[in-house]
């Protein structure tokens, strides 16, 4: 785990880090850097975090500390299709919890998990600002509004292109 660290990351990200390091308070950009890494790879692997720590000269423990503190960062790869249920207040009031239950039982996974075949992962978000259409579910950035538990199997099939 030493010489190869820099090749772990994409060139674009290395350049981004280099640019950050030129600025005032370089290490304050850690969160942005991790954001870029996640944007590129979908999640933060141990190697990624190691590499970032190495290049930015920040203790790995601190990088790991930051990565685990913020909900936005994922430490495991996500499924091919991301299903995300809004659990904001308005959606909750309109029955999002029952929609969530339906997804959980249909897919056999809990929040934050990915199906064994790597096809679906299940997440929750907070208010998307479309409370008027509550409850809302986003599947791969497509927003579905006023979702009922009945529609769950249909939505899954639709995502699979069936």
């Amino acid at each position: 785990m030493d010489v190869n660290l820099e090749t772990t990351l994409d060139k674009e990200i290395i350049e981004f880090i280099a640019a950050c390091m030129q600025r005032e308070h370089p290490r304050s950009y850690l969160i942005s850097v991790l954001g870029k890494v996640q944007e590129k790879y979908g999640y933060l692997s141990r190697q990624h975090m190691h590499a970032v720590a190495h290049i930015m000269r920040i203790p790995t423990s601190r990088v790991y500390g930051v990565a685990t503190f913020y909900h936005f960062f994922r430490l495991r790869p996500r499924g091919k299709h991301q299903i995300s249920i809004c659990m904001g207040t308005a959606c909750f009031v309109k029955g999002a919890d029952r929609v969530l239950e339906a997804f959980k039982s249909e897919l056999g996974i809990d929040i934050g998990e990915t199906t064994k075949d790597g096809i679906f992962s299940l997440d929750n978000t907070r208010c998307l600002g479309v409370c008027g259409l509550a409850p809302v579910v986003t599947i791969n950035n497509q927003v579905y509004s006023q979702v009922t538990p009945q529609q769950v199997p249909e939505l899954i099939n639709k995502t699979l292109g069936r």
């Binding site: 290490r27 950009y29 942005s32 991790l34 913020y70 909900h71």
Partner: peptide, 26 residues
């Protein structure tokens, strides 16, 4: 611009400042 990363507590002002400096927002 500095991006938050999904921690409600970072809305608290002292946590927010720590987060801007790239730390855990406690």
């Amino acid at each position: 611009l500095r991006l938050g990363a999904g921690a409600f507590v970072c809305g608290e002002e002292t946590a927010l400042m720590l987060s801007i400096t790239g730390r855990r927002g406690q």
